[in-house]
Design a protein around this nucleic acid. Structure first.
Length: 529
RNA sequence: GGCCCGGUAGUGCAGUGGUCCAGCACCCCAGCCUUUCAAGCUGGUAACGCGGGUUCGAACCCCGUCCGGGCUACCA
């Protein structure tokens, strides 16, 4: 199995799902999971985007058996017996393979300029407003005279693979069953650019064969590109033009000194084309749909285990109705053959609900630790903790977790609750002030709360008893007492449970906040009327 | 235009000829609980794209049609 994205930098959720399926299928069947970076298009690849991608994949928790790595000190490395795993470092192999393919007569040169190519296409269009014609050697290849003339001009040549002029290709696809094409509909792909570099079709096929990839699992967008790949696979494991007793790929590998293939392994066995992941509007996933990169989900406080679970369900289900699955369960029940065939819409609401459930199941201490990056500025701008947190901050955080755990859906939401507890001063939310404090009894409730809290034992039950007593004493419902006090103490009409919040805050800070809110409440009352 | 792929509630899945007037989950709505917000519990709304066949019987098989998507690059 292998996952081989182009290094755009952002790791798209669709890509992550493909990687996940690769990972799960490999683990389920005891195979290995290979991660390779397809950076044959030099212009698109940067070192940073590559690093970001590798780190993101590692963060999701998809451990690969072979592929590039980012070491703790930030340097790029790799692991595995069939490296290197960046195509930019395998150019020699592609050149050697291409040379042998030429010797085989499986290719032909194309000396056309971009303009000439366009002109050819225009003149071969079947009608107005129609798509480009199929490139076939029979009508595209230069005749010998032209070729000789063009070559003496010293024009650079690209190289195309000669595909069969007729007949049918049948591909066995694990998710779609048999898919077939007529060769006369398939264009001869460029396998070597005129600047000498290899294109994706060649590099991808050569690597899959050289690295012993047995199942090629990727997005449906690559389905129609499969025929030329099976053709290439056949050529690569076929006899070498110079030494017919070995396979072409093995001769090329030996020539450039790359690690040899596993002798027990023959060639790719099967393809698996995954349906696309689309947005809620059924359109292609893009920035319009909010976050689409895995890095963004991390910043928003989604747990990697949630992502693994949710993404696994995007196009697949275990069949027994379960939805909440941990990694072991996923690995045990996942099979590519069970993957659906229609496009799956990415539903952030469901992901979010899933995440909330998982957060609630986390042991409180673990949650506290996982919250730290969202409070110390690592993820997000809010800086409420020192790095590392002080003992006092840690204690407050651990005390806060039970109060907020069941009301969080994402880790970054802690940034909403924490300031009231981790800062000495509280900022009174204007909307809450306007909504609650002008009401009858607010001023009295705050005054009375300050009085009883000054004396009471500092335990949750005692605090509760004292505050509930105020309700009878002032002759108003408890809600009328609790809301003003809540605004005064936490700064907002929406907060974790009151008594626990007050207890966590401590007597000193609670009383200070009540005192500070009193004039605000009086003023709000006065303004009203 | 051509080739390929797909189409069960708003969304994700289940369903592979009868037990489906279609099940589960998210969303949404209502109620309960309740110091706010949540969480939890209970209930509810809502779907087999359409048309033909095959069959005693079709969401499931076949054909057509419509709609959506992918590819049609010296991108991957």
């Amino acid at each position: 199995m292998r996952f081989c994205p182009a290094p755009s930098g952002w790791l798209h959720v669709g890509s992550v799902r493909a990687a996940l399926y690769n990972f799960l299928h490999a683990r389920h069947h005891g195979g290995s999971f290979l991660f390779r970076i397809e950076d044959t298009d030099a212009a698109r690849a940067t070192e940073d985007s590559m690093r970001s991608m590798i780190e993101a994949l590692a963060w999701v928790g998809l451990d690969w058996d072979e592929g590039p790595l980012v070491a703790a000190d930030g340097t790029l490395g790799e692991r595995g017996a069939h490296g290197p795993y960046r195509q930019s470092e395998r150019a020699a192999l592609y050149a050697e393979v291409t040379r042998r393919l030429e010797a085989l007569g499986a290719t032909y040169p194309d000396l056309r300029t971009a303009d000439e190519l366009e002109a050819w296409r225009a003149s071969h269009r079947s009608g107005a407003g129609q798509g480009p014609p199929v490139v076939k050697a029979s009508r595209f290849e230069h005749d010998p005279d032209d070729l000789a003339r063009l070559q003496t001009e010293g024009r650079p040549a690209s190289l195309r693979l000669r595909t069969p002029e007729s007949g049918t290709v049948v591909v066995e696809d694990l998710v779609r069953g048999e898919v077939r094409w007529d060769w006369d509909q398939i264009s001869d792909p460029v396998i070597r650019r005129s600047d000498g570099s290899a294109t994706y079709p060649l590099a991808n096929s050569a690597d899959d064969v050289a690295q012993g990839v047995s199942i090629i699992c990727r997005g449906e967008d690559l389905l129609s590109v499969t025929p030329r790949q099976v053709l290439l696979h056949g050529l690569l494991i076929g006899p070498d033009p110079e030494d017919g007793s070995v396979a072409l790929i093995d001769a090329a590998i030996a020539q450039v000194g790359l690690p040899p293939r596993d002798p027990a392994w023959q060639s790719p066995e099967a393809f698996a084309h995954l349906p696309m992941v689309v947005g809620a509007d059924r359109k292609k996933l893009s920035k319009r749909h909010g976050s689409v990169s895995i890095q963004e989900f991390r910043r928003q406080g989604f747990l990697p285990e949630t992502l693994r679970n949710y993404l696994a369900l995007l196009g697949w289900a275990p069949g027994d109705g379960r939805e909440r699955l941990d990694d072991d369960e996923l690995i045990a029940s996942f099979d590519l053959a069970g993957v659906g065939r229609s496009a799956a819409a990415f539903d952030v609401d469901k992901l979010t609900a899933f995440n909330g459930e998982r957060i609630r199941e986390l042991p409180a201490d673990e949650l506290a630790e996982r919250l730290v990056p969202y409070l110390d500025g690592t993820e997000g701008d809010e800086v409420l903790l020192a790095d590392p947190p002080s003992a006092e901050q840690r204690a407050l955080l651990h005390g806060l977790v039970p109060l907020v755990q069941e009301r969080m859906q994402r880790l970054d939401e802690v940034q909403r609750y924490a300031p009231a507890f981790l800062r000495d001063e509280v900022e009174l939310d204007p909307a809450s002030v306007a909504k609650i404090l002008p009401k009858a009894g607010s001023v009295e409730a705050i005054e009375a709360a300050a009085e009883v809290l000054a004396e009471v034992d500092w335990t949750v039950p005692a605090i509760e008893q004292a505050l509930r007593g105020l309700s009878g004493q002032l002759g108003i419902g408890f809600g009328k007492v609790a809301q003003p006090v809540r605004v005064a103490v936490t700064g907002s009409s929406v907060s974790p449970p009151l008594f626990e919040s007050i207890e966590l805050l401590g007597r000193e800070r609670s009383l200070a906040r009540l005192a500070a809110a009193l004039p605000v409440a009086r003023q709000a009352r006065a303004e009203l009327g």
